[in-house]
Design a protein around this nucleic acid. Sequence first.
RNA 1: GUGGGCGUAGCUCAGUUGGUUAGAGCAUCGGGUUGUGGUCCCGAGGGUCGGGGGUUCGAAUCCCCUCGUCCACCCCA
Length: 443
Amino acid sequence: MWMKIQSARGTRDFYPEDMAFRQWLVERWREASRRAGFVEVDGPELESLELYTDKSGPEIAEQLYWLEDKSGRKLALRPEFTPTLARMIAARQAALPEPIRWFNVSRCFRYERAQKGRLREFFQWNIDLVGVEGEIGDAECISIAVDALKNVGLTPADVQVKVNDRRLLGALVRHLGIAEERVPQVFAILDKRAKVPPEALAVMLAEAGLESAQREGLERILAWQGLGDIEARELATSEIHAAVEALNRLFAHLEHYGIAEWCRFDIGIVRGLAYYTGPVWEVHDLKGEFRAIFGGGRYDRLLGDMGGKAMPACGFGCGDVVLGLLLEERGLRPAAEPAADCFVLREKPDWPEMLKAVRFLRGMGLRTQFDLKEGRLKRQHEKALESGARFKVILGEAPWPRARIIDSRAAADGAMKERVADLAPDDPEALKNLKVFLGVGAS
RNA sequence: GUGGGCGUAGCUCAGUUGGUUAGAGCAUCGGGUUGUGGUCCCGAGGGUCGGGGGUUCGAAUCCCCUCGUCCACCCCA
C-alpha cells in the first residue's frame, strides 16, 4: 500500500542520475561564488511565519507552506532565503566587516500551482553583497552570475542578462505625469509586457487611469533597444539624467569585467518585487522558451525595513529548475561520473584474499567495488564494465599478493595498459610504482 | 484557486466500433553461447491499465469524482 503513495505535488525524487546532476549544478554555483571570494552561509528551513508576513503582509501566508508546532507557534518552510539573510545580518551587523560577501544554496518551498519550471520544492542559489553602494556592486553580482552561466557551459548565444534600473523607469513614468501612487501599479503592468499582447497591455494601462498621451509615451519608451535610443527630450529632468548616468556607469563596469556581450539594456525589465530600488536584471534564454533563470537587483532599503540598520545591498537568486530544463534542452546536462575507480575480480571465491585487496585499494583512497553477489568471472567482468571503473584488479591467476591490473583508459598508442604487480608491497619502490600506475598521488 | 489536455510495466509506447488469461522494445533478474568480456540465444519477474465510484452481460476503452502531470489564467520573493 505504501507504494501507491506518490510524491507530493510539485516535489521531485532524486534518483542517482538526478542527484548527480543536482550536485554538479550546485558545485558550479559554489565555484562561481568562491571565485569571487564569497562565503557560504545557511539558516533554518523552518522560520517563524512572521518573518514573511511582516515583510509582505498576511496574504503571503497563502503562498507558502506553514504549520503550527506542538506549542502553537506558527512556522513556515522558507520560500526564499533573503529574509533569513536579513535576520542573520541584523543580529550581527555591528560585528560584520563590510562589504558582506555571502552566498547560500537553500531548499525552498512555495505553495503554488506547479508548472513547468516552477515547482513547490526547489533549490535556490543566492548571492548577496551588502555594504556596497555604487554600481560596482551590481556589476560584481552580474559578473558572478555570468561566471556561473559559463561554468555550466552556456554562451551568449544561449542566454542574455537583461539590465534595467528602476530609478530610470520611475523617473520616466513620473516625467510622463503619472501620479506617484500609480507607479507601483504601472510597474506591475509593465512587468507583464512579455507575456501579454500589446493591445491587452494598452487596455490594462487605460484601466489604470493613464491618459492616451501617457500610454503613447510608455509605448515609445518600451520600444527602446538601447540606452542610445533615449532621445534628448526624455533627458529633460535631472532625475532621468542621473539614472541614465548610473546605468552608463554600470555598463562601463560590465565592459571591464569582459562580459558586455552577455548583457544588454532592456527597459522592460521591472521585476515583480516591490523592494528593488535601483538596477534590476534577469537572465533569459535567447529563444524565450523558459521563464527567467536569474533575477537580481539592488535593494538598499530592505535590511533597514526588516528592522536592522539601513545598509545598501544587491544580489540575485537562481533556481535549479529552469536552469536544469535549459541545460537539458541544450544537451549540456553532463553524464554522471562512475562511482568506482577500481573493480576487484577473482574466479574462485576467496573472500579473505578479495577483502585484503579491497582494503588495500580503499586504503589508498581508491573507490573500490567488487561483485557482492558472487557471480562467475564473466559476470564479474560485465559488472566491472558497468561500474565504469577505470581499473580492473584480477586476483587468483597467480598466488596472492600477485594481481593483474588492467587500465581501461587507452594509452597514447591505443593499447590497453596492463601490468602484473603485488598488492600491498613492502618494498617502497614497488609501492611507488604501483601508485603511479593507479594514478594515486605519492604520499 | 479557475479553465482545458494528458495518465497502460522502471522508461518509450501499441491496444481496432466496449468483447477471452492486457502486449512490444529497452531496462532488470536468471540460464546458456562467445577466445579478456558491452555480442548472440533462451527464459523469468514486473501492470487490480493513476485511484474510487457508476453505466453495461462485459470497461484500459463510456460517465462522474479524485490524485498526479502539462498548458493558459492568478501569482511569482
